[in-house]
């Protein structure tokens, strides 16, 4: 209810290792993007504009951090930004590419570049730069992050609610609750009633259970809910017929990075 004129905040988008699907998800809400342009100046939106600025009020980081040069670039962005927001599952927790963190680098090289690369990465100087790709990091492993917009892709409604809050000078708040809450409110049949398995019980809500609404299951792309009862969930998956290896795989699809952080691996 406060009415004061302020200069338009500058917001920027930066890409790292990701598919840019989060930016596309936002661009798909054309009407809202136009409204947004009334209220903020968007800079460095590679998908939409090509202008550059030096300081940013809100920097949205998309993608995981795979190379040291990316980390350097990210540190520079952090130094020039008031708020840094990790945009989407890659930036928040490494996404599927972080699964490679569980495989020895030489194994990865063999899979990607052929069997002969297995040893050559160690013996041939030409290959040494590949070592820079050996660990996939989330944004908050490299710089302090103010807010996380979870999901693969991120949810435009959450993006807007965060921008609205920051424009109003408020603290955005995303209540810690599992996907089941939104799924039930949508009156969905529980995936387990269909003989399938779901990560919804231990996954951060905010997506309005979009995957289950559309006949799929929750794969946990929004990350593990803090304090979730993982023991009970693993037991539930076991009782639903999954082997321990399958359960690990289910967890590691999106939550691998979060998992290694939780267990301190």
């Amino acid at each position: 209810m406060k009415d004061t004129e302020k200069p338009k905040p500058k917001i920027a988008f930066f890409d790292f290792a990701g598919c840019e699907g989060c930016q596309l998800a936002l661009l798909n809400c054309e009407d809202v993007v136009l409204d947004l342009l009334e209220l903020v100046d968007i800079v460095e939106f590679r998908e939409a504009l090509s202008e550059k600025a030096h300081r940013y009020d809100i920097s949205f980081i998309e993608g995981s951090i795979n190379r040291e040069e990316d980390a350097q670039r990210l540190r520079d962005i952090r130094a020039r930004s008031k708020y840094v927001v990790a945009l989407g599952a890659c930036a928040c927790m490494g996404n599927v590419q972080a699964r490679s963190n569980f495989v020895a680098p030489a194994e990865n090289f063999a899979v990607v570049y052929g069997e002969e690369a297995r040893n050559r990465v160690q013996t041939d100087r030409e290959y040494w730069p590949l070592w820079a790709h050996t660990r996939v990091r989330s944004v908050d492993e490299v710089v302090p992050v103010d807010y996380q917009l979870r999901g693969c892709p991120m949810i435009p409604e959450e993006f807007l609610s965060l921008v609205k809050s920051l424009l109003a000078g408020s603290i955005p708040f995303f209540p810690p609750k599992p996907v089941c809450v939104e799924c039930k409110m949508n009156c969905n049949e529980c995936v387990f009633d269909q003989g399938r398995t779901c990560m919804g019980q231990v996954t951060y809500a905010g997506c309005n259970a979009v995957c289950i609404n559309n006949g799929y299951v929750c794969d946990g792309c929004r990350g593990l809910l803090p304090g979730a009862n993982l023991d009970a969930h693993r037991q539930l998956l076991r009782e639903s017929g999954l082997t321990d290896a399958q359960i690990e795989s289910r967890y590691r699809l999106f939550c691998s990075q979060a998992e290694t952080k939780h267990t301190g691996q």
Binding site: M1, G169, S170
Partner: peptide, 18 residues
């Protein structure tokens, strides 16, 4: 102590609240 009260802390004389 929260999103609402943080904003109220920026309010001063003449501002309206509900």
């Amino acid at each position: 102590a929260g999103s609402l009260t943080q904003v109220l802390h920026s309010y001063g004389p003449g501002d309206a609240i509900g």
